[in-house]
Amino acid sequence: MFGYVIKRAFQMVLVLWAVSVLVFVMMSFTGDPTYMMVPLDATEEQIAQARRLLGLDHSHLTQYRLFLKNVLQGDFGRSFVFRQPANSLILERLPATLEIVFLAMAIALVVAIPLGVYAGANPKRAGSHAVMAGSLVGISLPGFWVGMVLIFVFAVKLQLFPSSGRGPTQEVFGIRVSFLTWEGLRHIILPAVTLSIGTLAILMRIIRAEMMEVMRQDFVRFARAKGVGQRGVLFRHGLKNALIPLVTVFGLMLGDLIAFATLTETIFAWPGIGKLLVDSIYRGDRPVIVVYLMFVALMFVVVNFAVDVLYALIDPRIKIR
C-alpha cells in the first residue's frame, strides 16, 4: 500500500510536468496575447512595454523556466485580466464547479442504478426496452440543447427555477456551497440535471448490461436457492458484482463531467472554473488557461487514484500494488 502511494505520487508529478510542457507549447503557438490586452490605438512603444510587463519578451525556453521555477514556489502567475494569482482564481471558483459535477454524478447514480438494475434483471420486459430507448435519447441529445430546453420549460414557461446564476451560498468548512438553502438548490437544479443527462444515460446502459451478465451467474442462483429475497439477490449479490466494471470507468466519467461542465456553466452563467476557462480563452488570459488545464490533469490523477482504492475495496481479489 505504501509503495503504491509513492508510485502514484510519482506518477502524479510526472503527469503534471508533461501537461505543463504540453500546455506551454500549445500556448506558444496560439499567438501573442499582448494585442488582446492593449487598447486598439496603442503605440508600438506601449505594446512593447506591455509585453515586457507580461514577461513575454523572453524566449519560450526562458519563459518556461521562469514558469516552472515560480510554480515550484506555488506561484502560477497572475491573470492578465484580473491582476490576481491565477491559482487563487481557479480555487475560488472550484467549489461551484465541483458542486454541480458532484450533484450531476449523484443524480446520474440515483436514477441510473435502480433503472439499470431493473432493466438488467428483467431484460425482456417492456420497462427494460423503455429504459434502453430512453438512454439512447439521453446519449444522443446535445447537452447545450437539453440545457436550453430546460431553461425554456422550467425557467421561462413554468418559472419554477431561475435561468442562470448561482444564488446564495453558505460557508461549510471554508468552502462556499449553495445546496443548503432552497434558493440555492433552485439555482443548481437545472444546470446539474443538464450536466447529468449524458452520464446518466451511459451509466444506465452499463449497469443494465452488467446486471444481465451477473444475473446469469451461478452464485445468483445459489443465493435464490438459499432463500434470499428479490431485493437481496438484485442488490446485495447482483449489483455489487455489476459495479466492478463500472468503477473502472467511473474516473473517466467524472473527467467527462468536468469537461462538459464548461458548456453547462456557460449556458447557465454558473460561476465555476469552466466558465472561467471559456472567458479566459476569449480574453487570451494565458496563465488562467494553463492553471485550469494543470488543475484538471491533477484531478484526473487524483480521481484515478481514488478509483483504484475503491476497486480494491469492492473486490477482494484485487490487491493494489
Partner: peptide
C-alpha cells in the same frame, strides 16, 4: 417459497468455482 428455500430444501450446484459470491467472505 423463500421460507422453504434454504430452510426446508437446499440445493447445490455443479461448479463450486462459481457458486459462491466472489465479493463476500
Amino acid at each position: 417459497l423463500r421460507k422453504i428455500r434454504g430452510r426446508e430444501i437446499a440445493m447445490i450446484f455443479q461448479d463450486p468455482m462459481t457458486a459462491l459470491n466472489p465479493l463476500y467472505t
